[in-house]
Nucleic acid binder design. Structure first.
Lengths: 94, 94
DNA sequence: ATATTTTAGTTTATAATATAAACTAGTTTA
DNA sequence: TAAACTAGTTTATATTATAAACTAAAATAT
């Protein structure tokens, strides 16, 4: 009756990150941090998890002399998100 | 931008329980356990949490000689669920 | 020039959570 | 009357989320 919810997505900050990345071409660490109102430590950990799952790609470069971490959602991430939403709807519609 | 998700509801089993209880007048332990496909231990713990939060009411009686635990969603629970769904929609709509 | 603060993160520690395993108390069945 | 089942609860463990502490370099102030 209730399909399992992907535990990688069923976590507030990771879900917010995915939601955000689905609405933009790409986003850097600071932008994501501001939009999700998260701490750098927490965000760093959650980006790693999404990256390790292959849901996002993370590129570390430099912007001038400062480090720049740029994230994009992957096809796999989009698919996982869509499946998560489908499953979740079973729980929340009256 | 992203509103916080009520942590009491943002947990798969508790969300399933609430979802289920919203669709019925009341439900007993075994029924909930079957519908949510959960273990008795996990369900027992999560029902306690929902009960302590005032999201459900739990009545312990006997059906013949066997214990019977009956649950109902409360007004507070309905409101919390609705607010959770509203917040969640920010995350999942494209 | 050099001390101070800020930026952009990572790593580590802690607190919270979910879950399973073990247990209880009584009931039904063999 | 012993074994298995019902309807749970309690306790232990593993996972997770989060915050705090830390790093390294850059920008700013003195």
């Amino acid at each position: 009756m209730f399909k399992d919810l992907d535990p990688l997505l069923h976590a507030q900050l990771r879900l917010a990150v995915m939601s955000l990345l689905l609405s933009v071409e790409s986003a850097d660490f600071t932008f994501i941090r501001e939009k999700t109102n998260s701490t750098a430590g927490n965000l760093s950990v959650q980006l790693d998890k999404l990256s390790e799952a292959g849901y996002i790609s993370v590129e570390k470069t430099f912007k001038g002399k400062k480090p720049l971490t740029t994230c994009k959602v992957t096809k796999k991430g989009i698919k996982a998100f869509e499946e998560y939403v489908t499953a979740l709807k079973q729980y929340i519609q009256k």
